[in-house]
């Protein structure tokens, strides 16, 4: 039969553009940004856990921690400078991660315009891997709420008593509202599910392959998901159930 499938020659572009244009490149970017975001999440979780530490000179430890973040590398850098550099990097990583995910989703939709009409029966693909784009998208919306709640203090996301810099008080106020607690717990679970596939997937996308350690990738993904989920769930629940006051 006549040749129906042909390839068009593409114009060459500067290599980072060309690299990001390819799906393999986008997955690599997703893996790198994912790694960065995981790093942030771990730091964030450790910071959150300071809620359990006793006051220092009558000031909650976590408030001191917030203060320290704002004053990172002061006086070499002015106040807030390093924090904003970090924040910019973080935002950039989120943007890239989301953009890559979005354009790959479009690509994958196009790759199967007529779907199977019979039921599919998956063997390897699990709940986590098949819901990445949902867990990711929902988490993104949660993040907006979270920023409004803690960082920006926009009501009704933030409690009425919200005050800049009063981390501990804000914390307590926000989790005194049980629907918010439920939301945060759900988001942490979603994050865990997302990471269960994401962490494993990261190794594949980066092409890190060593038969000696390949089975560990799953354990690492599982372990990290559980630790992060539990680490993020613990403070809200502790407030909600009155463990800390």
């Amino acid at each position: 039969m006549a040749v129906t499938q042909t390839v068009e020659k593409k114009k060459r572009a500067p290599f980072p553009v060309e690299f990001y244009r390819s799906a393999v490149g986008k997955k690599w970017v997703m893996a790198i940004t994912g790694l960065g975001i995981i790093g942030f999440a771990i730091a964030h979780m450790i910071g959150n856990l300071k809620i359990f530490l006793p006051d220092v000179d009558g000031i909650p430890d976590i408030d001191l921690y917030g203060e320290a973040l704002r004053e990172l590398f002061v006086p070499i850098f002015p106040e807030y400078a390093v924090l904003w550099i970090l924040r910019t990097g973080l935002i950039l990583m989120f943007v890239l991660h989301v953009h890559a995910a979005y354009s790959l989703t479009i690509m994958n939709r196009r790759a199967r315009t007529t779907d199977y009409e019979g039921p599919r029966s998956y063997i390897a693909a699990n709940y986590a891997s098949r819901t990445m784009r949902w867990s990711g998208t929902i988490f993104l919306f949660y993040l907006l709420f979270h920023l409004a709640d803690f960082t920006l203090g926009i009501q009704p996301a933030a409690p009425e008593t919200w005050e800049y810099g009063e981390v501990f008080a804000n914390f307590q106020a926000t989790f005194d509202r049980w629907p918010v607690t439920v939301l945060y717990v759900t988001a942490a679970i979603l994050l865990g599910i997302h990471l269960y596939h994401g962490v494993w997937s990261m190794f594949q996308s980066l092409g890190i392959n060593n038969p000696r350690f390949n089975t560990w990738r799953r354990y690492l993904a599982g372990g990290l998901s559980v630790i992060l989920t539990l680490g993020f769930i613990a403070p809200p629940l502790a407030v909600a159930f009155g463990v800390i006051t």
């Binding site: 997955k27 063997i123 890190i208």
Partner: peptide
């Protein structure tokens, strides 16, 4: 489409070709 590392291909492959080869390809592409 693009690979999102489900691993479904490896299970369907009649020759049971490992998805480790995808990792090798990704590394080589980068």
């Amino acid at each position: 489409g693009s690979c999102t590392n489900h691993g479904e291909c490896e299970k369907a492959c009649p020759k049971q070709i490992s998805i480790d080869f995808i990792a090798l390809m990704n590394a080589d592409y980068v």
